[in-house]
Design a binder for these strands. Structure first.
Lengths: 357, 357
DNA sequence: TGTTAGCACTCTCTATACATGAGTGCTAGA
DNA sequence: TCTAGCACTCATGTATAGAGAGTGCTAACA
């Protein structure tokens, strides 16, 4: 039943499909043959368009909501458009400048940048945007610090070699003073700097290493290893969402149940856990249309995603989510530009080689 | 025109108002006189109820959506109910245990706790919840660390005396090695530990202090002061939202425009900037019904808020937001319990005096 | 004075029928 | 291969009627 894929589509039919996608994206109403004749110079009559439309429908690229309505693109139609028909043009220099400008007004912090990127993305394409916090694949311990909070509590602050910072409180039995801890801290730092979570665990299990150290050392090292490990694993909890309001203006989300769906998608994000890893391993902008991506999750939504950051370091995913009826060309351009920009910023701030103007 | 406030309401009329609020909250349908007779033992006829209803309406406590409909509470009616009629009972021990249990499974981190609190709150009252990240009023510098990221970039990690941690990257002209920086760091730490943002600024402007220090000292101190200052100011950006999905199940949010409104409220949060400071300065649970709170923001929404944390230290606001037709009693109980629980947790983890079992 | 039964009145909601208009598919001819 | 013409289909809008819910009011009653 799905063998309409091999039907040939003529050049003019492709043009018509293109027009239908553009018109429908712009107006949200089914596109009629007459409209195409009036607004575009194809130099054929509406009847001819109708014949071509019938072919396109046989090919599974467009469909009719009901008998006496115009045509709208099908999922496959959108896919065909995205793959073969559209040509995304770069953002105008003006737009690029406006966007870049916003990044110069903010304190330099990777996470803030990503948050801002999502926000700018949402505004620029007038749609919802998502972004994951930047993560590195194998974080090495750059430095850690022990700070006595009270008699029995120690604050561990850990700095990764990628500039990431986490903290955790540790409650210990006997009371400690800051002096002892500084000494311990210095010795441990010297011993384990540059190690990954796994390497610390290994080092920790070697009896000979632990002998000369304080009783506190094992618990501290174990906690450090745990913190490092948590830095590596990208958590879905650290996703930024922005611009939900925009997307709800679209007429496809007029029905409350649909809104419900998309909000769940935003809030729980279990769907993302399948998509994001695959994006992290791909290059360029990826477009997922409707149910293509997941078994049953972002049905009737499209997402345009790209990776940002450096290879395996300070990397993450950002993109746009919207209705199937989405301005794909513009979305792809914008996502592409934003991921590029963000990568540049991170590279300049966090890469070991210096490259300042 | 608003002088119906002084009309007396009888004991039975108060009972009727109470019933109307409860019924309407439960069913979302206007409450008819007949229903009240059938479901409650007031030992009067429906006609009598109708007379009382007319009085309550004259008093501005209830109203009719249209002529031949039952009654629903007005804003003033809800307010009267909350102030005079309802008596919130504490959560059952079972519920308390279930909630507490969830906080023992998570790594100890203040911000995570608050996030979890919002999430638990949303689930427990089946509504949307908000919470602000914990902040302290006057943060003192506990310790800071300088870490060379690359030749010309330094990572500043700052630890406040309340356990809060922030980081920032600093780009400097000439290249630095970790050795020099450790020395500088030690000297500066000794000099300015325990100071607030303002005190650091003051100390910085005193020429005699700066003389013997490296060229880097001023820019570092200035940055530190800025970071400390940012720790104090509660940012609306660091608000946690949860359970938007629940709230949209309510019939009052069946209309897309209403959804739009509430999502904007969630996303931009400019409305909160007026409310939150006043909550921070108050004790107990505060209920804001409809437009009582803000000129024109959370219209047709009610919020139940409370402060959590210690006085001036690791403090913030958490609460519930929902339609006017909200189970106020249960909301108040739950918000009250959650704020208490969170305060206890923070107290135990971050307060200087030790109190471990 | 407070309470009750009875009843007319009002308003919402639903279903039905009907007209309108948009847009197509098809046929026959160029 | 294209086009003009036309019948057909279906969503949308409007008018109307009937049913049902719930009240307000009046008059009688304790």
């Amino acid at each position: 039943m799905d063998q309409h894929g091999d039907i040939k589509v003529s050049e003019r039919q492709r043009a018509i499909l293109s027009i239908i996608v553009e018109q429908y994206v712009a107006t949200a109403r089914p596109v009629a043959s007459e409209q195409i004749v009036n607004n575009y110079n194809l130099n054929v009559s509406s009847a001819t368009i109708r014949n071509d439309m019938a072919d396109l429908e046989r090919a599974g690229l467009i469909l009719q909501p009901h008998t006496s309505a115009g045509r709208i693109p099908s999922d496959r139609g959108y896919r065909y458009f995205v793959t073969n028909l559209m040509n995304p043009t770069a953002l105008s220099h003006d737009e690029q400048r406006t966007i870049r400008h916003q990044f110069h007004q903010i304190e330099m912090d990777a996470e803030e940048w990503v948050r801002l990127a999502a926000s700018v993305l949402a505004r620029t394409v007038h749609s919802a945007a998502v972004a994951t916090a930047p993560r590195s694949v194998a974080v090495r311990l750059k430095h850690f610090e022990l700070i006595a909070i009270s008699d029995t509590r120690i604050l561990l602050v850990l700095v990764g070699d990628d500039g990431s910072v986490t903290q955790q409180i540790l409650t210990v039995g006997e009371s400690q003073d800051q002096g002892e801890m500084s000494i311990l801290s210095n010795r441990l730092n010297a011993a384990i700097a540059g190690k990954t979570a796994n390497e610390i665990s290994a080092w920790l299990s070697d009896e000979t290493n632990m002998k000369p150290l304080s009783d506190l050392a094992p618990i501290i090292l174990k906690t450090l290893a745990g913190m490092l490990a948590r830095l590596e694993r990208p958590e879905t909890s650290s996703m930024f969402h922005e611009g939900l309001g925009h997307i709800l203006e679209q007429p496809e989300f007029r029905h409350p149940e649909r809104i419900q769906q998309i909000i769940e998608l935003f809030e729980q994000g279990s769907v993302w856990s399948n998509i994001i890893p695959s994006i992290l391993n791909s290059e360029g902008v990826q477009v997922i249309i409707g149910e293509e991506g997941s078994p049953e999750g972002i049905a009737s939504c499209s997402v345009v995603l790209a990776r940002y950051g450096m290879e395996d370091k300070m990397t993450g995913v950002l993109g746009v989510i919207g209705p199937l009826r989405m301005p794909y060309s513009r979305s792809v351009s914008t996502v592409s530009y934003m991921s590029q920009l963000l990568s540049d910023l991170l590279q300049r701030a966090y890469s070991p080689d210096k490259r300042d103007a």
